[in-house]
Amino acid sequence: MKILVCISNVPDTTTKVKFVDSDTKLDTTGIQWVINPWDELSLTRALELKDDPSAGVKSVTVAHVGLPASEPTIRKALAIGADDAFRVNAAPADSYFVAAQLAAVIRKEQYDVILCGIESSDYNGSMTGGMVAEFLGIPSVSAVSDIKIENGSPLLTREIDGGREIVTVPMPFVAIVQKGIAKEPRIASMRGIMTSRTKPVRLYEPEAEEPLTGIKVYEKPSPRAACKFIDPENAGQLITLLQNEAKII
């Protein structure tokens, strides 16, 4: 069984984002780029499955659509433990474009289990995984918080409103994973960092595809009114304010 983990590189989640060029572009000055948190967790789960001989995972590959500048993010994933990687050499124009590029390579390389994080912390699209599945015409399961492989077939826990379901689908499939899929992201060991330098990263040139959407301008959320403080000794006053002033309860 071959697992593919699709990763996106995003600004560190504590970044205070700023925009330049009349608010049309992210100001990348001083930004620390990291693997998208959900993708990092899905990579961790993929490696856990590979460590378990009963799951029968032969390899874990990392997929990325991006320019050479995002190479360090791929190397980081290899250092954490992925066996190899491919990169489609194109700026990720929108989710549709990225999914089309991923699907084109997946058709050539063939994977059994494709993992995508439920969203990226930059565009918050929640789209790429479902789109890849539709391009490939294969099943997708969304909001997956656990994956097990039993007797060669997958058991996926998906979160639904007010509960969860354990489902199975035939391979190949796309699992769109969320919180719970792994406890803590796996960290690269020194040996992992050394070996990552020599692991193969296959380079693909992009297919001719046009993005369907574009971002015209960014704006920051409107600032909130200053906080009104209430004396802790008289905390009940808060409830009165919420009722009479904010009229919210």
Binding site: S95, A99, M127, G129, G130, E134, F135, S142, L212, T213
Partner: peptide
Amino acid sequence: KAVAPRLSVRLKAGMAS
């Protein structure tokens, strides 16, 4: 989130989430 992205590809319709 589970269905709309698939629909986007199926209809070749741009999506905003």
